[in-house]
Design a protein around this nucleic acid. Structure first.
Length: 705
RNA sequence: GAGUGCGUAGUUCAGCUUGGAUAGAACGACAGUUUGCGGAACUGUAGGUCGAGGGUUCAAAUCCCUUCGCACUCGCCA
């Protein structure tokens, strides 16, 4: 190589088609000043003398408009050598894949990771939007486990909100009237939440706009009209200001700013009008949809001031000052959480720990941190006891450099807006509690890394936590707390809103899928003239299979696209098994199991690594084995990119390849026994790969369908 | 006004970190395969100015700049 002036050989790559050769190299990279084609020619003359090579071809692109002038050297290896290389590869690959620890890696042995996910508000059932969070969190946790991490799954319980407080007030009313839930608890509480939410905001709106108080918890259409009138006169004034500002040409920059401010104000008022009119329509809607709960609640609520009671309850709960109220909160929240668990268990999702926002607050940690942060040069005092944390560029630079982040590692490159930590009365806001929670989380498990699975809207608040943590001396936490961000879920043709108690719940999604899989299974049994199970055991087995298929069908659509992409779930499409990759992968696995079992019963062979590798040196077998060994690369990529969809595609590709392999290469009817055993070994390798892949995706593989 | 993400076939997406040959799948459309090792299958065909424009390069979907479209975020809700 030296005589050509080449010091480092660029990496070999695989030609796009096998008939071009086994390996190739781009000649353009090797020389700058010489004529590339001449250079390639002399190089090929030299290289073709290598004993193992049968030919070295030169190929130049250039017919198309794009990417022209690339010169490749394509190497073909002598067939005898190739055969030997492939045989060695096959033997080695089979040993690795058929071993017990295939799919389990040790890079992070001894390390601890926490994945915080789902963390849905404990006042309405889990819907498919939350479920995307759960499925991503759970799958990612499983991927981390495969790299050797000890993983703990945490659920952050937001139990300290206003919404929880008025829901608790509503719950207490119904309990005192002995009205018990007649449906799954989280669904039931979801109704209470929607109704109480409407009461609460109807009241505050009435007070704010001085509306007649005779029906304090219901905003009538008359009220809406009054508010509209008042606000539209405000808009008129603003429009006037806008016109004045437009004509003023004195300072162009500040002029722009006031104009912008005015248009923001106008937009805000328009939003207010919209919200008020929605309060009216939602009230009517809830009253008609849930008449019993609605009327029971409204009668009682009229006897007290809801706003005041809600604040009082929240204050007592937050400061841990009234045992009865504290217990009431936990009664509601824990009961709903049980409902969540029942739901998520169907999807194969469980938690190691629930962390309550209230308990973090009761520990006093957030207040301590605020006390310390008050001394920080980055703190700005606002009104009263309110403080804000700011992010000066110098501080950010130091943060970045000391923690070894490059600019591209950070989610936000430019200026970071200030973060308010306390209210005017000095009490901690959510952000301050989150700083406290981050510390508690890390320390409780002595964790090396924490992944917070939170939707993309939270990118800024999540990032804002890091500098205060760093400044407080928690450098490790600031470095190793990662926001696993995901985009939202939309449903084709349906609106989702907790306030309206309108959502496709995770329960419905699962149950509907289960029913459809049962129908599909029956249909296929009829076509194949198989009788449905008649005895108890048969029925149980049938049910078990359907549960596993349903897991695949429900989880796959939520995980198969990158978390950064917004997905639109079309239930008709997801429930059509031919269009959903989940059941397809399950099917491939079941089919592999079926073949292995059949060969055992008919020939008495058990899959084994001791096969004649020459029977597996065809391109298709090599491709499958290479793909199986590639799992490690895919897992690492999924971890680095925070993207489990990489594993979902890996499974799907394996299943597809196996299906076509299976059409092409008969196993039971192989030409001879050696060939049969070799192919059986390959099928076993595929089976192991699919079982591993499914299990990483949180889907229990089924060996029958 | 600032920030972030996304934009690739009729549809849903992969590929972009680290530039390299003919831009890959799936669904849908169309045409085939089956006396079966499980048809929830397989084989094939058609379908693309990679949002637009410019730059860097021997070479750009990929890197840089500009621009358009969509979504989200920007101090007392959690």
């Amino acid at each position: 190589m030296n005589e050509f002036g080449i010091e480092n050989l660029p990496p070999f790559q695989n030609p796009p088609s096998p008939d071009l050769g086994e390996l190739s190299i781009v000649v353009n990279k090797l020389t700058k000043d010489q004529d590339i084609e001449a250079f390639a020619k002399s190089l090929s003359f030299e290289l073709v003398t290598i004993e193992e090579l049968s030919s070295v071809d030169i190929l130049k692109t250039g017919d198309k408009k794009k990417k022209q002038g690339i010169v490749f050297l394509n190497f073909k290896i002598k067939s005898s050598v190739k055969k030997q290389l492939r045989s060695d590869f096959v033997s080695g690959a089979l040993v690795k894949i058929l071993s017990k620890n295939y799919g389990h890696f040790t890079d992070h042995n001894g390390n601890v990771a926490i994945v915080e996910h789902t963390s849905a508000n404990p006042i309405s059932p889990i819907h498919v939007g939350n479920l995307r969070n759960s499925v991503h969190g759970d799958t990612f946790a499983r991927i981390l486990e495969r790299t050797g991490y000890k993983v703990f799954r945490h659920f952050y319980v937001n139990d300290l909100g206003l919404q929880v407080a008025f829901t608790v007030v509503g719950y207490e009313i119904l309990r005192s009237k002995h009205i018990r839930p007649d449906i799954k608890i989280d669904h039931w509480v979801g109704k209470i939440y929607a109704i109480m939410n409407n009461f609460y905001y109807s009241q505050t709106t009435k007070v704010k706009y001085n509306l007649s108080a005779n029906d304090l918890y219901f905003l009538s259409s008359k009220d809406v009209i009054i508010v509209e009138k008042r606000l539209s006169s405000d808009i008129k004034k603003l429009r006037e200001d806008q016109r004045v500002a437009e004509q003023d040409q004195s300072v162009p920059k500040s002029k722009k700013k006031t104009l912008r401010d005015i248009s923001i104000k106008i937009q805000k008022i328009l939003d207010q009008i919209d919200e008020v009119s929605k309060l009216n329509s939602t009230g009517i809607d809830l009253r008609t949809r849930f008449p019993q709960i609605y009327s029971s609640l409204i009668i009682e609520v009229k006897s007290f001031d809801l706003t005041e009671k809600t604040r009082m309850y929240l204050k007592n709960f937050s400061q841990d000052t009234d045992e009865r109220i504290v217990e009431l909160f936990y009664e509601v929240v824990n009961w709903v959480l049980e409902g969540f668990m029942t739901t998520l268990r169907k999807f194969n999702i469980e938690f190691d720990q629930f962390d309550y926002e209230s308990k973090v607050t009761h520990s006093g940690l957030p207040d301590e941190l605020i006390l310390k942060l008050r001394q920080s040069p980055n703190i700005k005092k606002v009104e009263g006891k309110a403080i804000r944390y700011s992010y000066p560029p110098e501080a950010m630079k130091e943060f970045r450099q000391n923690l070894g982040f490059t600019k591209n590692d950070l989610p936000i490159k430019g200026h970071i807006p200030e973060l308010q930590l306390t209210r005017t009365d000095g009490t901690a806001l959510y952000a301050a509690k989150d700083i406290g929670y981050s510390i508690t989380k890390f320390e409780s498990r002595n964790a090396d890394v924490v992944y917070n699975v939170i939707s993309v809207e939270q990118t800024l608040p999540q990032f804002q936590l890091l500098l205060p943590l760093y400044e407080l001396g928690y450098k490790n936490i600031a470095k190793n707390m990662k926001h696993y961000s995901y985009e939202n879920v939309e449903l084709r043709g349906r609106i989702m809103s907790g306030r309206l108690a309108l959502y496709v719940t995770a329960d419905e999604y699962f149950d509907e899928t289960f029913i459809r899989s049962r129908m599909a299974k029956r249909k296929s049994e009829v076509e194949r003239n198989i009788a449905p199970p008649s005895d108890h055991d048969g029925w149980r087995e049938d049910n078990d299979i359907l549960l596993k298929v349903t897991q695949a069908t429900t989880r796959f659509p939520l995980i198969e696209t990158s978390p950064k992409k917004r997905i639109v779930l079309d239930l008709d499409r997801e429930l059509d098994f031919r269009r959903n990759s989940g059941p397809f992968v399950q099917y491939a696995h079941a089919r592999a199991c079926g073949i292995i079992e059949k060969i055992l019963s008919e020939k008495g062979f058990i899959p084994n690594v001791a096969v004649n590798p020459v029977d597996l040196i065809d391109d298709d077998s090599i491709f499958i084995l290479t793909h199986l060994l590639n799992l490690k690369v895919r897992i690492d990529k999924a971890v680095n990119q925070l993207d489990p969809s990489i594993i979902a595609s890996w499974c799907f590709e394996l299943a597809t390849k196996f299906m076509s392999y299976y059409e092409k290469y008969p196993v039971l009817n192989a030409e001879n026994e050696l060939q049969l055993k070799a192919r059986l070994g390959l099928i076993e390798a595929v089976r192991i790969g699919l079982a591993n892949g499914l299990s990483i995706l949180g889907i229990n593989p089924t060996n029958k369908l």
